[in-house]
């Protein structure tokens, strides 16, 4: 299982890096936008491109955050759960997460089909490229949860 953890970490790192790159692109686009408006450079659509990278930034990191325990959680009540119930509780939490991730993943796949011919105004980014972000990000998240489920179930059996 250590090996699988290693490959998951690799994917997570690659996704974090891509997200960080998106952040730097957003930064560059914002600066260009301020410059364009205040010096009349006439760039247009920078905002729409920046928002596109924002979508990618958000979905790229959900899987890594689940892997590293980085999602915001409220854990003071669950700390009081008796030790022997904990693996079961973990399984339950993972199942809820898996359900939510799977529904949005599937909806995004369908959205890629439904909006295959449409594009963003002004900059003509194909809309399926927007929905590809949740497909990729949540796809990885689902794998993270399936792996966790597998480990938890093994622990309960043992």
């Amino acid at each position: 299982m250590a090996e699988s953890r290693l490959s998951f970490d690799r994917v997570a790192s690659a996704f974090y890096a891509t997200a960080a790159l998106s952040l730097l692109l957003i930064l560059g686009l914002m600066i260009a936008r301020v410059a364009s408006r205040n010096f009349g450079l006439g760039f247009s659509g920078l905002q729409i491109i920046a928002q596109f990278f924002e979508v990618w930034l958000a979905f790229l990191v959900v899987g890594g955050l689940a892997l590293d325990g980085g999602h915001i959680e409220i854990d003071y009540l669950s700390q009081r759960i008796p030790e022997r119930w904990k693996p079961l509780h973990d399984i339950l939490v993972t199942l809820v997460c898996l359900f939510a991730a799977a529904v949005v993943f599937w909806g995004s796949v369908k959205a890629m089909q439904q909006f295959r011919d449409s594009t963003a105004p002004l900059v003509d980014i194909p809309i399926p490229l927007y929905y590809l972000a949740p497909v990729v990000g949540l796809g990885f998240l689902i794998l993270v949860y399936v792996r966790r489920l597998y480990l938890d179930v093994k622990e309960v059996r043992a």
Binding site: S36, R37, G42, S44, L46, Q47, I48, L122
Partner: peptide
């Protein structure tokens, strides 16, 4: 004059045609 154009092709082309310099802001 520099004017804000709605980020939809038909709108922003119409405004350019009226003569204005256009820029996209939210």
């Amino acid at each position: 004059y520099t004017m804000r154009a709605v980020p939809i092709a038909m709108y922003s082309e119409a405004l350019k045609a009226l003569g204005a310099q256009t820029t996209n802001i939210d």
